[in-house]
Simulated assay, not measured.
Amino acid sequence: VCRCTYAAQWRSAAAAGVRRRIVLPEATDPRTLQAAGRSLDFCDVTLVCRRAELQDVRSLAKELRVPLEQMELTSVEDHSSFEHLKQQLADRRAGKKLPDCLQPLHFANMLVAAGLADGHVAGALHSSGDVVRSAFQIVGLQPGVSKVSSFFVMMPPDKDPLVFADCAVMVNPTAAELAEMADMAAVNYQSLFPDSEPRVALLSFSTKGSAKDPAVDKVIEAWELLKLRRPELICDGELQLDTALVPSVAASKAPGSPVAGKANILIFPNLESANIGYKLVQRLGNSKAVGPVLMGLQRPCNDLSRGCSTEDIEGVMVFTALQASQS
């Protein structure tokens, strides 16, 4: 199935049933405005900015021919629920320091936490660290989840998509965190590709004991923990990348593996390898990268690369609407 077919299927799924409201706190960014205008067929949109930015947003929308009249545009200062939401956040944080609630990024998460929006997308103008930190502090983690993590959907031309995790958030996850990440990635894969079975490869520079190192031991332990968490999940580790993806290499290096040569979810051992890996596949392999999509939060709040395109933002908005429908 080509990547345009998957994109059309996800969009149709997001448009079906109850419409979801996605809040965008980077309304002064032209890519964000254009993505908002192109997403009205599958979601409702709230644009958030500061009061002093309202006229700039209106002028930019007029220049770009974005139909603002079909969206909600609000300034943080003028929102009717600002003081109430601020007090709610103070109560939840129980004496901890409050983030600056006047910042659109934080206020967008306040809307999501209160159920006034179903999801939030940002990162065109903010770093991943800022986006994740705000979501963690304001929206919070799902019960039983230890850390926020993320995945990209990598869509090579004329090949089946792959999920890469974690390319954006966790710098050096422990074995337990890798297992948790892999578990959540498999759940998300199943929701995005219901006709395909998740097959998880925990990656390393070693395949089945070909090298000895504490870094390899961590991946082996993660695999063992993942099997305990999800006995029914098809998974294997530790595997080198070529073993995970290339059947002929898999037959030589990991014969009998249920995953080798046909993995569709790649769990990288750390952020360094994952971030470099996804960008190599994106830039040299001409693959479309959708994400990073955050995992483990109570409600959907998703990140973008600051180098994102309008189409990238639109894609993450689709995923956010799908997550909201399934949560």
Score class of each variant (00 low, 15 high):
Arg3Ser: 14
Ala16Ile: 03
Val18Gln: 09
Ile22Glu: 07
Val23Gly: 06
Leu24Glu: 04
Glu26Trp: 06
Ala27His: 00
Ala27Arg: 00
Thr28Met: 04
Pro30Phe: 04
Thr32Val: 05
Phe42Val: 11
Thr46Glu: 01
Ala52Tyr: 01
Gln55Glu: 13
Gln55His: 05
Arg58Val: 12
Ser59Tyr: 06
Leu60Asp: 06
Ala61Trp: 00
Lys62Val: 03
Glu63Ile: 08
Leu64Ile: 00
Leu68Thr: 03
Glu69His: 15
Glu72Tyr: 06
His79Ile: 15
His79Lys: 08
Phe82Pro: 14
His84Asn: 15
Leu85Ala: 02
Ala90Gln: 10
Arg92Asn: 04
Lys97Thr: 14
Cys101Arg: 13
His106Tyr: 00
Phe107Cys: 12
Leu111Pro: 11
Val112Lys: 13
Ala113Ser: 09
Gly115Phe: 03
Asp118Lys: 07
Gly119Ala: 08
His126Arg: 02
Val132Cys: 02
Ser134Asn: 01
Ala135Tyr: 00
Gly140Arg: 05
Gly144Met: 02
Val145Ile: 11
Lys147Asn: 11
Lys159Phe: 14
Lys159Met: 13
Asp160Ser: 02
Val163Gly: 15
Cys167Phe: 01
Met170Trp: 06
Val171His: 10
Asn172Asp: 14
Met181Pro: 03
Ala185Lys: 12
Asn188Ser: 15
Tyr189Val: 15
Leu192Asp: 13
Leu192Phe: 15
Phe193Arg: 05
Ser196Asp: 13
Leu203Ser: 07
Ser210Gly: 02
Pro214Ile: 14
Lys218Asp: 06
Ala222Leu: 04
Glu224Leu: 10
Leu226Asn: 04
Leu228Cys: 10
Leu228Lys: 15
Arg230Tyr: 11
Ile234Lys: 04
Glu238Tyr: 08
Leu239Trp: 00
Thr243Pro: 06
Leu245Gln: 14
Val246Lys: 05
Lys253Ile: 09
Lys253Leu: 13
Ala254Ile: 01
Pro255Gln: 13
Gly261Gln: 04
Lys262Phe: 03
Ala263Val: 00
Ile265Arg: 09
Leu266Ala: 03
Asn270Met: 03
Ala274Asp: 12
Ala274Arg: 09
Asn275Cys: 05
Asn275Pro: 02
Gly277Pro: 11
Tyr278Val: 10
Lys288Trp: 05
Lys288Tyr: 04
Pro292Thr: 14
Pro292Tyr: 06
Val293Pro: 06
Leu294Asn: 10
Met295Ala: 07
Gln298Cys: 10
Asp303His: 14
Leu304Arg: 15
Ser305Thr: 14
Thr310Glu: 15
Thr310Ser: 14
Glu311Lys: 11
Asp312Trp: 01
Met317Leu: 13
Val318Ile: 15
Thr320Val: 04
